[in-house]
Amino acid sequence: MVTEHGIARHGAGPGAALRAFTSQIHPVFMLPPLAASAFGAVLAVRVDALPFVLHLVAAFAALYTAHVKDGYVDFHLRGEDEDHPMTALGCRTALVGASAVFFACAIALGVVVGPVATLVTLPGWIVGYLHAPQLDLHPVGATAGYPSGVSFALLGGYYVQAEAFSPVVLAFAAIFLVTLSGVKTVDDTKDHDYDRSIGKRTVAVVLGPGRARSFAYALMGVGMFAVLALAIEGVFPPSAPAAAVAFGIVAAFAYRAPPRLATMLLVRGAYVFLALLVAAVWFRPLAGAPLPDITVLGPYTYLATEVMFGSVAALLLWHARAWWAAARTVAVVYPVAYVWDWYTLEVGVFAIPMRTGIELLGIPLEEHLFMLVVPAFVVGVHETLNGDD
Rank of each mutant, 00 (worst) to 15 (best):
Y158V: 11
T295R: 15
W340P: 00
I232F: 14
T143V: 01
F60E: 06
P209F: 00
I175R: 07
V96M: 12
L155A: 02
T179A: 12
Y302S: 15
S151P: 03
T121K: 04
A41E: 03
I352A: 13
A100K: 12
Y271S: 15
L122K: 04
V113H: 04
I25Q: 06
I294D: 14
A304I: 01
Y217E: 00
R92D: 07
R213H: 05
R211C: 00
G380T: 06
A173I: 11
A376F: 04
V206Q: 10
K190G: 03
P51L: 12
A325M: 10
D191P: 08
V73H: 01
F236I: 01
R260G: 08
E233Y: 11
A108P: 03
M86D: 01
P285Q: 10
V281W: 11
L34R: 02
Y255E: 00
A88H: 11
L365Q: 06
A240Q: 01
Y146R: 12
I198N: 09
A204V: 03
K190W: 02
Y129E: 13
A229T: 13
A262M: 08
H192C: 06
G141I: 01
V101A: 12
V183C: 05
L317H: 06
T143E: 05
A58P: 00
A325I: 08
H67S: 09
L261F: 10
I232E: 13
L77Q: 14
A243M: 11
F102G: 06
F39I: 03
Y338H: 14
A218Q: 09
P139E: 00
I358Y: 08
G141H: 03
W125K: 06
V127A: 13
A218F: 13
T384S: 14
F102V: 02
D389R: 15
L360I: 14
P147K: 07
L219G: 02
R19I: 08
Y334I: 05
L31Y: 13
V205K: 04
K69R: 14
